[in-house]
Structure formats: structure tokens, C-alpha cells
Design a protein around this nucleic acid. Structure first.
Length: 155
DNA sequence: GCCAACGTTGGC
DNA sequence: GCCAACGTTGGC
């Protein structure tokens, strides 16, 4: 089993949105970055555990856990609505450029583990954690089993 | 709202 | 294939 972290802006789609979905499951659409796409398309497996991270907000940090419910498949938001935010004329059903996965809500953390707190371990236990790397902008990143356990231990 | 960092685009 | 221009991300 693999571990991941996925970012979303809570004003756009936060963990409470996911928890309120039917079956507490939804597709993770709108990723338009090749590295992130490759992880969803090629590496994520059903049952993988994922940290839900709130970005671009007052208190950025890890707010909960979800799991992969369906493995990579074409992101139809690239073509369903030409006026849509995620429309990309270079992607179509016959030759999809973008992929997504389905995620299922597991639980909220007992408290938000903030980016500020995680940074305290940037030179220690979380030295290789991509989230803390300078200038990092990846919206999806792998988490090692060790990092996963350490972060959950902070809860 | 600012702006540093980074990815993508497109002219050459 | 280089690289300047541009757009986006995301912390602060």
C-alpha cells in the first residue's frame, strides 16, 4: 500500500465537501500538471491512504485522511464543458491528456496539523518531505510509510 | 494583495 | 533545443 498527500483549496473543495458527498466519495478532477497526473494514472491503487491538505487558506495544513476508491481514469472535465474551468481542447475522450482518481473520505484528524508545525521537522524526520521543499507546488505527492506514521503520531 | 518559484508555451 | 514571456500556485 502507498501513501499520498493531495492538496485542495478549502474554499473550492475542502474535506467537508468530500464528507458530504453521497457515499463520501468523489472524483478528484482538475489536476493539470503532468507529474501529478502520472501519479494518479500510474501509481495510485485502490486502498492507498491519502492526507487531505488544505492549501491557499488561513491555516494551511493536513486536515484529514481519505483513501483511493477508484484507480486512474480520464478526467472528463477536460472536455465536458468548453466554458468550464478545467476545459482543455487538447484532451478528448479518444486521447485523454488528463486523469483523475476517485477518493473516499475516511476521517478528519483530531486537529489540523499545520504547515507551520510540519516545518519544525524540516531538518529532521521530515527532511525529505516534498511539501516542505522550497518552492514546491506539486498538488499531489508521495508520502513514505515512515513520514506517514510520524505525521499521524503528531495528531 | 504581494510576490517568489516554478511549469508551460511558442518564437526563433 | 533554447529561453523569454507568461500564467499559476500558494504561503504570507
Amino acid at each position: 500500500m502507498n501513501y499520498w498527500l493531495m492538496k485542495s483549496e478549502p474554499d473550492v473543495y475542502g474535506i467537508d465537501h468530500l464528507a458530504a458527498e453521497p457515499g463520501q466519495t468523489d472524483h478528484w478532477d482538475g489536476v493539470r500538471n503532468y507529474q501529478a497526473r502520472n501519479m494518479m494514472r500510474d501509481q495510485m491503487k485502490v486502498g492507498d491512504q491519502v492526507f487531505f491538505y488544505h492549501s491557499n487558506c488561513k491555516e494551511p495544513g493536513i486536515v484529514g485522511i481519505m483513501e483511493i476508491a477508484r484507480e486512474g481514469y480520464p478526467d472528463f472535465t477536460a472536455w465536458e464543458d468548453p466554458e468550464g474551468k478545467y476545459y482543455d481542447p487538447k484532451s478528448d475522450p479518444d486521447n485523454p491528456r488528463w486523469y483523475m482518481v476517485d477518493v473516499r473520505y475516511v476521517r478528519h484528524l483530531k486537529r489540523i496539523i499545520t504547515l507551520r508545525e510540519l516545518k519544525q521537522y524540516a531538518d529532521g524526520e521530515l527532511a525529505d518531505f516534498p511539501l516542505l521543499r522550497r518552492g514546491n507546488r506539486l498538488s499531489i505527492m508521495p508520502v513514505t510509510k515512515t513520514q506517514w506514521a510520524f505525521i499521524l503520531g503528531l495528531e
